[in-house]
Design a protein around this nucleic acid. Structure first.
Lengths: 220, 220
DNA sequence: GTCTATACAGGGATAGAC
DNA sequence: GTCTATCCCTGTATAGAC
């Protein structure tokens, strides 16, 4: 995990580096504990101990429990979603290969990165309950959402989609679908097989490509 | 809300009726408070007072905070989703009219029934964190999910979808999409316009009807 | 910067009166 | 059945030592 740190830095960490390391370890621990116990259910003691420090260190770096939570939200708003989007850029649109890739992404998020979805849910709940952090949340979401939007814009162009179809709307649909399926898989895995996400996107993009218009009745 | 109770019952409520009424009021209050404060953040005192009773009454009807929460989960697992599905049965598949109806359903759920989504999130988090209630949650979900599945089965048949397309999978996709869009709308309303849910379903069903197969590459 | 010790508040649960 | 009073644990936050 810290293999990238070069030798000199490892031998003589400066105070600033040590401080930054403590901060990072506290944030990692906070992500784990908040995901597993929730914001209200988590105690600062458990977070500090899980990071290998004491309560005092936590209060020194962050003002308290809420400040720590908000810092986490700002720094890791959407986890590794940016990377995932980048991965997808290597592929075309709606092919079987992309679908398989997306299936693996969903399975990994739901079954292996088990802290991701609960932490996202905690962030969402906190934002909904505290209107003054709604903006923070919306801001954290904007960047990855726009990355997805750009990617989808290319896909739409490749497939010759009608110009009325906005990439932003399609991006919202894709993101909603992903989050919804991940959560559903956690409580009823059988109802969300690995291929479903990719399959749904194929359906979606096929439908868009075939010019199903907004207010138009079906063509039967 | 209690307009259906006949006159005689209103004049002389038996002890059993009074008890049932207290229980219902406590459950209503619990739904409100749990939605607004979360499971850990809610206090039994606030729930009891919000219902117009004291802590003692709550402990008499339910064993405690957790038992109350679980009772709520079992009784209202998915809120008014069953009714919503029933509403949709009055319409055909993928028409502009149905789309408009679905848009209104989403807007109502996101903007007006403001306690719904947070309460669902609390249920989900609790189930994910306490494996022994995962079954309870899955069970509460099965019935409405099957209703949706039946509805979608008819739609698929009407539109002449390929037989490989399973109604269960499509139902998962539709449910995931709905939940995802509702949550997204709460933090960034502009990114989820009223028509989006209906529009997405039109895309989806058009794609399915045009025979976009699972592992088949696109037909360009 | 990080630790230990402590003050202080909040809330879950129970006992007994009515 | 419902209420009031109380016990006791947990957890946040702070103060001062090193």
């Amino acid at each position: 995990m810290s293999a990238e740190i070069d030798e000199s830095a490892r031998r003589r960490p400066t105070r600033a580096e040590a401080k930054a390391r403590t901060r990072r370890l506290l944030l990692d621990a906070a992500a784990r504990v908040f995901a597993r116990k929730g914001f209200a259910g988590a105690s600062v003691e458990e977070i500090a101990e899980s990071a290998g420090f004491s309560i005092g260190a936590l209060y020194s770096h962050f003002g308290g429990k809420e400040a720590l939570f908000l810092a986490l939200m700002a720094e890791r708003g959407l986890g590794r979603v940016a990377e995932a989007t980048h991965t997808l850029e290597r592929h075309g649109a709606g092919t079987g290969e992309t679908a398989a890739e997306l299936g693996r992404l969903l399975v990994h998020t739901a079954d292996e990165d088990t802290d991701f979805a609960p932490l996202q849910a905690e962030f969402w709940l906190y934002a909904v309950r505290n209107p003054h952090v709604l903006d923070t949340m919306a801001t954290a979401l904007r960047e990855p959402h726009q990355a997805l939007e750009g990617l989808i814009g290319s896909w739409l162009a490749e497939r010759g989609a009608p110009p009325e179809v906005g990439a932003a709307s399609v991006a919202s649909v894709v993101a909603a679908l992903f989050q919804g399926l991940v959560r559903q898989r956690r409580i009823a895995p059988d109802s969300v097989p690995e291929e479903l996400f990719g399959q749904a996107l194929i359906w979606l993009f096929t439908g868009i490509g075939r010019g199903a218009a907004a207010t138009t009745a079906d063509q039967d």
